[in-house]
């Protein structure tokens, strides 16, 4: 699992690839988001196009990251979920928690 970070118009974009599962990617995501929040970034966009597998532990981490970001007065949004991940977000109704985009420009503009 890999996370690459870049900044666009004040939005921290995390491009995540690989798995977010129990004991594998979940802790990395948690640590990365905690680090960003600690350093004052609270406009977070997770590009999860490269996430080919997520389980309930991965979903738990996303929900935790969303809550922690909201607690800091910020927002965490999702970009480009694959059909498999989108299905899981839909089934669990987490699609109502996460604002989701399929275009990076639209996603970044939504933070303004």
């Amino acid at each position: 699992m890999k996370i690459e970070q870049r900044q666009v118009d004040g939005v921290s974009i995390l491009s995540i690839s690989g798995k977010i599962t129990i004991g594998e990617g979940d802790i990395k995501v948690r640590e990365k988001v905690a680090d960003l929040l600690e350093n004052g970034s609270n406009k977070l966009l997770m590009d999860i196009e490269g996430v080919n597998y997520i389980d309930s532990s991965g979903l738990t981490e996303l929900v935790n990251c969303h809550s922690k970001t909201s607690d800091r007065g910020g927002q965490l949004k999702l970009l480009n979920p694959t059909p498999k991940v989108a299905e899981l977000l839909f089934v669990t109704r987490l699609n109502s928690v996460f604002e989701t985009f399929h275009d990076e420009g639209d996603a970044v503009a939504s933070f303004a």
Binding site: D55, S56, T60, R93
Partner: peptide
């Protein structure tokens, strides 16, 4: 039910629900 509004933001409780759905 993890989809209930009061549970949506809770971290866990989705594993069995996912199994039942897939």
């Amino acid at each position: 039910d993890p989809r209930a509004p009061e549970n949506l933001h809770k971290p866990g409780g989705r594993g069995v629900f996912i199994i039942l759905n897939v």
